[in-house]
Design a protein around this nucleic acid. Structure first.
Length: 111
DNA sequence: TCTATGACTCCGG
DNA sequence: CCCGGAGCCATAG
């Protein structure tokens, strides 16, 4: 095992830096990691994050602002509940004002 | 090694 | 934005 830092670890580090009341997309994280084609891997990492330390995976949605992974959370509306608790409005798994709450690590985190 | 899968994204209609 | 199809890539078996 030479690679101590896996792709997952990178995703976790970025996910942890997502500010309160903000969300980002899998592609944005993947792009920040230098793997814009590995957006799916980010989602895969999020799924594994359940077994890791506390990762705000509920703040990560797809590019359309849809809670594609809410089904993977405990219960059925936990993910939506967590986001709404942060002041994010959601309708039918779709984040309202997605462009407003969107947090791009490439633009906000970096630099 | 190969196949299947997926919390995605892009493209054309 | 919705729908169908294709591309991408790490992980599991």
């Amino acid at each position: 095992m030479k690679k101590e830092i896996n792709f997952f670890e990178k995703v976790y580090q970025v996910a942890k830096q997502i500010p309160f009341g903000r969300v980002t997309s899998y592609g944005a994280i993947a792009n920040y990691l230098g793997a814009p084609r590995s957006a799916r891997m980010v989602g895969w990492a999020m799924k594994a994050s359940h077994n890791m330390e506390e990762i705000p995976a509920h703040r990560v949605v797809n590019k359309k602002g849809i809670l594609t992974g809410k089904h993977h959370f405990s219960g059925t509306n936990l993910m939506q509940n967590l986001l709404e608790n942060e002041g994010i409005k959601i309708t039918d798994n779709q984040i309202l004002d997605f462009e407003t709450v969107f947090w791009d690590p490439l633009k906000e985190l970096l630099r």
